[in-house]
């Protein structure tokens, strides 16, 4: 760095001298270039002031002592700025390291929580889940039973950030530990509630909607733990209705029992499951209305389920200026005709 300063010192002095003589724009442009080179070489503000002082002393050996003293005064006031500058530099580097560590964690989360969309006869499934930041606080999971049935969980951690996102892997592994319960939404939630209550920090809550579908009966059985209600599209009446369910979020009290509901579905019907990142999408400062969401879904209803959810996501991504405020998970089931 010392060498760099010496080279720049010569240029600096020449430019300064030239400018004092000519007052031309070219020297000022040169000053700008030198300044950028200083920044690049991480030369501190106090060093630059010192360069100036030295250059002036060489150019004007007879300079008035008072002015000289005033420049030393200026130098003194720059020292702390130099320190602060170094500190910011360091904090910025630390921030970059942190960011890359988080992205490693996010990738790991993706691997841990990965789930494959199963092929179920007569059912077209589409799902999209996009985190607002690096780590996803939403979660969905498919469990395919040996009897050809399908269990679907969709969940949202209340209390954002990395710890919240991490506790989702616990949920996933708990779900996989109780395969016999995947056929009973009520039992599944009752069990998960115990796991969350025992193991998760009191500041973190998890909402979950769990549903089980048996193709031979064409019926959805479901239960909800305080999760954002989904919607049922009735092809016959060509209308949506909210899927009603009651149940407290996971992890509040250890002995919660959940209620189970049934919903028969017919060819052409759709079931829309989502997280609040979808229903609370915002257009500027305004929250979107439910009708708006359902209109958009309906608009793409003729597409295969996967394309549908992608189009709906694109619509709201654009509406929110490509900056999601909350994790966005949308899952659509279409009963094929």
């Amino acid at each position: 760095m010392d060498n760099a300063i010496k080279i720049d010192a010569a240029t600096y002095k020449d430019l300064l001298e030239h400018y004092i003589k000519t007052r031309d724009e070219q020297s000022l442009y040169g000053a700008e270039q030198v300044s950028k080179s200083f920044i690049k070489k991480q030369i501190l503000p106090d060093e630059i002031v010192n360069l100036y002082i030295q250059a002036m002393a060489e150019l004007y050996p007879e300079m008035c002592k008072d002015v000289q003293a005033s420049m030393d005064f200026l130098l003194e006031t720059m020292i702390a700025y130099g320190l602060a500058h170094q500190e910011y530099q360091n904090l910025r580097e630390e921030q970059l390291t942190l960011k890359s560590e988080i992205s490693v964690a996010a990738n790991m989360q993706k691997t841990l929580l990965g789930t494959t969309k199963p092929e179920i006869e007569g059912l077209d499934i589409g799902v999209v889940s996009v985190p607002a930041h690096q780590m996803n606080g939403d979660y969905h999971h498919f469990v395919k039973g040996e009897d050809g049935s399908l269990g679907i969980a969709i969940a949202d951690v209340v209390g954002k950030g990395i710890p919240a996102a991490l506790c989702m892997s616990m949920i996933k592994y708990s779900m996989e530990t109780y395969p016999e319960e995947s056929t009973s939404p009520k039992k599944m939630l009752t069990n998960l509630n115990k796991v969350v209550e025992r193991n998760v920090d009191p500041g973190i809550f998890i909402t979950m909607f769990y549903t089980h579908y048996l193709p031979s009966e064409s019926t959805l059985r479901y239960a909800s733990a305080g999760h954002e209600p989904g919607f049922y599209y009735n092809a016959e009446t060509d209308s949506f209705e909210e899927i009603h369910s009651k149940g407290i979020v996971l992890g509040v009290t250890p002995d919660t029992e959940y209620q189970q509901y049934e919903l028969p579905i017919y060819p052409g019907d759709m079931v829309v499951l989502l997280t609040d990142g979808v229903t609370e999408a915002r257009d500027g400062e305004r929250f979107i209305e439910t009708e708006e969401l359902l209109d958009v879904i309906k608009q793409y209803a003729d597409l295969p389920a996967q394309e549908m959810v992608q189009q709906v996501y694109k619509h709201f991504e654009r509406l929110q200026d490509f900056q999601l405020r909350d994790d966005f998970t949308l899952l659509i089931l279409k009963k094929q005709v």
Binding site: D46, E47, N50, D72, L75, E76, I79, A80, L83
Partner: peptide, 11 residues
């Protein structure tokens, strides 16, 4: 010590 270093030492 030069002027800058004097100022740094003082700080």
């Amino acid at each position: 010590f030069g002027t800058v270093d004097q100022a740094r030492i003082a700080t």
